[in-house]
């Protein structure tokens, strides 16, 4: 009976731009779809014909290896044809505007465009102008929806439900699209969220979103069900925001000593790439509480689900 009640919702979006505009029901729909695609990874033949005849363009204006690769494998497993374009190989370096480049991609019959861009809102800009499906693979400090979805999926599969959990996000929140997407998703699914980091990178304004802000990690850790450590983004840091690596580790690094404060079943997550010895001690990253590699595997199932859903909708 519940099976049919659950199946009432139908997916209707051709674009995935952010978590903010999704309903809790849509988020759960994507996570459930990812369950089905995770099963595909256990078959003899791990490839399904769902997107046969479709062309996917991985359009990465900002460098990224893991996200791009994950999208590429996901697309191949769905039988789509994949083209990769990076910033230095595109005409953007010759002064072409984003809109013109995108129009060219569309004229070449790109059915799905996966966009990583340094400007917040770039995916939405394209989605409003193109009939292709646009998938946001990270835009500036705005959102990184598939990362948040794979984090939610990983939490759900380890803890059975997200609602009621206490999730602590540590580090550079201000510049982090991963943090923003995670905050939206976690709150929609009923988790309690605490942000911890240097006050310059975790301003009190975040409390308006409905999360708690703390500058005392040792006080927060004992009640955490999940800690999500964000990478210190050296490339985005300006000196005035940041006290120095040594002080950061002393106050906010997840050291072996500090990890003793955690509940034994608390999950340790990190979106990668890890700065070993900065956000987290190397041993903890490889330890029993770490689900960092699960996140990578689940990312594939999530991206297959997102490409299947958005790419499967007629843009006409």
């Amino acid at each position: 009976m519940t099976e049919l009640v659950k199946s009432q919702m139908r997916w209707q979006r051709k674009d995935l731009l952010g978590i903010r505009e999704l309903s809790a029901e849509e988020i759960i729909f994507i996570l459930d779809t990812a369950d089905a695609f995770k099963e595909v990874g256990t078959r003899d033949i791990k490839k399904v014909p769902a997107l046969r005849g479709k062309t996917l363009v991985n359009f990465f204006v900002e460098p990224s290896t893991r996200t791009r690769t994950s999208f590429e494998i996901a697309a191949i497993r769905l039988s789509a044809d994949v083209i990769n374009i990076s910033a230095n190989s595109s005409s953007l370096t010759k002064g072409e505007t984003l809109k013109d480049t995108a129009k060219i991609l569309e004229a070449n019959h790109a059915d799905i465009i996966v966009l990583r861009h340094s400007s917040s809102g770039a995916p939405q800009f394209l989605a409003e102008r193109l009939t292709s499906s646009i998938i946001n693979a990270g835009d500036g400090a705005h959102e990184h929806p598939t990362q948040a979805l794979l984090d939610l999926y990983t939490i759900r599969s380890r803890k059975s439900a997200v609602a009621g959990l206490h999730v602590v996000i540590i580090g550079d929140i201000l510049f982090s699209r991963v943090a923003r997407s995670n905050i939206f998703g976690l709150l929609k699914l009923g988790a309690r969220v605490t942000l911890v980091g240097p006050s310059t990178l975790v301003p009190r304004e975040f409390e308006k979103l409905g999360v708690a802000v703390s500058y005392d990690l040792d006080r927060v850790l004992p009640t955490a069900d999940v800690v999500n450590l964000l990478r210190i983004q050296h490339e985005r840091q300006r000196k005035e925001y940041f006290p120095g690596i040594g002080e950061y580790i002393r106050l906010f690094g997840l050291t072996k000593e500090r990890a003793k404060l955690l509940k034994p079943d608390c999950l340790i997550m990190h979106p990668g790439p890890i700065n070993r010895g900065v956000e987290i001690d190397s041993e903890l990253a490889d330890g029993a509480q770490s689900v960092i590699l699960d996140q990578v595997t689940n990312g594939l199932a999530i991206r297959m689900a997102v490409l299947y859903l958005c790419g499967g909708i007629s843009g006409q």
């Binding site: 089905a36 769902a50 997107l51 005849g53 859903l309 499967g312 909708i313």
Partner: peptide, 23 residues
Amino acid sequence: IDVSMHRDDVGKRAELPRVQASR
């Protein structure tokens, strides 16, 4: 056996139903 991923009309529909894991 869920057939959603194996259908020949993906991309031609306005909405998609829930996919279940096959086993």
